[in-house]
């Protein structure tokens, strides 16, 4: 029971007859929203050795790309990737239970080799190496920045922000990028 209801009960409702704030539920949401706001667009520099040919790293990147979260993922995550979010407070979810780890769910918006039920809000990333990298249209830094914070080269983007939100670590962004640019 909130304070106002309690007070109005004590004082008699008639005193507050013109005040419906204790009758009509109108909970505060602005604090929730404030804490949840997206930080400004941030520019990142890809660390040395970011893009790798290590098959384990690429497998983790692929898994993050194709799955929504640790609870929903049907297959077992590859070595080095957890179903649970082991660092409470670092990512979006907090609470007493260890939450499921969020993955990228990139296929919600992008088609790519082997995708099931891919969306088309974002461009098709199939054959990315040949089409975008080997042709010189994109470089690794671009791909890294796009996944980390796509607002830098497109302020009106509809894409998710993945590093500025701390959804993923720099290492994970590197693994996702390595998967996209790998030959498939």
């Amino acid at each position: 029971m909130n304070k106002i209801v309690f007070m109005s009960l004590l004082a008699g409702v008639s005193l507050f007859s013109a005040n419906y704030s204790s009758v009509i539920s109108s909970p505060n949401a602005s604090k929730l929203i404030q804490k949840d706001l997206l930080a400004p667009a941030t520019k990142y520099t890809m660390p040395a050795g970011c893009i790798t040919k290590d098959p384990n790293a690429i497998a983790r990147g692929a898994f993050i790309f194709h799955n929504l979260n640790g609870k929903k993922a049907k297959k077992k995550p590859p070595k080095g990737l957890s179903r649970k979010q082991m660092k409470p407070g670092v990512t979006y979810h907090q609470g007493d239970k260890i939450p499921a780890k969020q993955y990228g769910n990139c296929i919600a918006c992008h088609n790519i080799e082997g995708a099931h039920g891919a969306g088309n809000i974002g461009p098709d990333l199939s054959n990315y190496k040949k089409t975008y990298i080997d042709s010189g249209a994109r470089n690794y830094q671009f791909v890294f920045q796009k996944i980390a914070d796509p607002r830098i080269d497109n302020p009106k983007t509809n894409m998710t922000v993945n590093l500025t939100t701390k959804l993923f670590t720099t290492k994970e962004i590197c693994e996702i990028a390595s998967y996209i640019v790998s030959p498939k």
């Binding site: 929203i33 949840d36 997206l38």
Partner: peptide
Amino acid sequence: TKRGGRGLGCIS
């Protein structure tokens, strides 16, 4: 307003 773990808004 964009917010949350993936930086999305209704507008996205």
